[in-house]
């Protein structure tokens, strides 16, 4: 059983017909040739397939493409400028050697981008003290190493680049 839909992938409207069973990840990789999100586990246990869906980070392997007609999807490829200039997070990953094999990297970078926005919006993590801002208005959460480590724990890296990843994100978060 197939469905027709349009996804706005990295700023481009892409219309396609998918088998309802096709995950967002497989739609991107196998139908649209957008292979920046990676398939590491296919069960939401590694984070390699992380994309920004409507601006929020999600694992694209655990959601069906058919449920996202009209959605904005941003991959790590789309975070870079059209002229090839890298996103600050991407440049920081390069500078801090925030990867080795590179397979988890696009997911790490999308996750970091989503995470920075969450912290800016005042979303807490397990590492955040209880309580909220004056008058109950959420205020941005300062991101120390412990915060970044906890918030990035949904992105596994088997090469063990975590320390450098945290350094890279801190360099951007501090700006």
């Amino acid at each position: 059983m197939d469905s027709q839909l349009t996804l706005h992938v990295d700023g481009e409207p892409r219309s396609l017909t998918v088998d309802n069973r096709t995950t967002l990840l497989d739609a991107l990789r196998d139908r649209l040739g957008v292979t920046s999100p990676k398939k590491g586990c296919d069960h939401g246990q590694c984070g390699s397939c992380t994309v920004l869906l409507g601006g929020r980070r999600v694992v694209s392997c655990l959601t069906f493409a058919v449920a996202h007609d009209g959605a904005e999807v941003t991959t790590a490829e789309g975070l870079a400028e059209a002229d090839g200039r890298l996103h600050p997070l991407q440049q920081a990953f390069l500078d801090h050697d925030g990867f080795q094999c590179g397979y988890c990297t696009p997911g790490q970078i999308c996750s970091a981008a989503g995470m920075l926005a969450e912290a800016e919006a005042g979303h807490p993590s397990s590492a955040t003290a209880d309580g909220d801002g004056p008058g109950g208005v959420p205020r941005p959460v300062p991101l120390d190493e412990e915060e970044i480590r906890e918030r990035m724990s949904g992105n596994l890296c088997r090469c063990g680049a975590y320390g450098n990843i945290v350094d890279a994100i801190r360099a951007v978060a501090g700006r």
Partner: peptide, 21 residues
């Protein structure tokens, strides 16, 4: 020097086995 394969890897465009068109 930074990794030569780095720009392709941080954008996800370095082709791994599955990803050759």
């Amino acid at each position: 020097p930074v990794r030569l394969d780095g720009p392709a890897k941080v954008t996800g465009t370095a082709p791994y086995a599955w990803e050759h068109a």
